[in-house]
């Protein structure tokens, strides 16, 4: 391939790129103009007028980062969304994640909430919830006194 061929090939590539950029740019302008005139296009297949609350709920942040469900702080594992749906209506997820119990004690806690705190019958979801809680929030042995931990050392003036 001589110098001239290389030159023409490069020119052709640049021209293609420019064309693509122009097309993309035009599409963007079209979308913006359209959105200002008829903003509904942003809601793909879901009219906010029919379901005014739907997108608020859908827009709930369900991202998982480092194995943690960001919005609630729950560990990401089988049954996560069942737990979110049934265990965060009345109280914060923090009340769950602070605690460590055996499956038997988690079950007793559910019964206590059902007997005294208006928790509904969990039906076949109960087994999923119990499995999730017992495997992710199981007791850790601490003994009669733990070492002092998480100390932030500083120079005392």
């Amino acid at each position: 391939m001589n110098q001239q061929e290389k030159y023409f090939e490069a020119v052709a590539q640049i021209r293609k790129l420019m064309l693509r950029l122009i097309v993309v740019f035009l599409i963007m302008i079209a979308v913006i103009v359209h959105s200002l005139l008829a903003p509904d296009v942003f809601v793909l297949g879901n009219s906010p007028h029919e379901e005014p609350y739907a997108w608020v709920e859908e827009a709930m942040d369900d991202r998982i980062e480092n194995g943690i469900h960001v919005r609630t702080g729950f560990v990401s594992d089988t049954g996560l969304m069942t737990v979110v749906a049934n265990c965060t209506n009345c109280h914060s997820a923090k009340l769950v994640t602070q605690n460590r119990m055996s499956k038997e004690r988690w079950r007793a806690t559910i019964r206590w909430m059902q007997e005294t705190q208006n928790l509904w019958d969990l039906g076949d979801k109960e087994a999923i919830i119990l499995e999730y809680l017992a495997s992710n929030y199981a007791p850790i042995q601490k003994g009669r006194r733990q070492n002092l931990e998480k100390i932030e050392w500083y120079v005392l003036e």
Binding site: F42, V43, L44, G45, N46, A54, W55, E58, A59
Partner: peptide, 14 residues
């Protein structure tokens, strides 16, 4: 709602 719709709306919110 699909993921794309969610992203679009997140952008819309901002």
């Amino acid at each position: 709602m699909n993921r794309r719709g969610f992203i679009t709306q997140t952008a819309l919110t901002s």
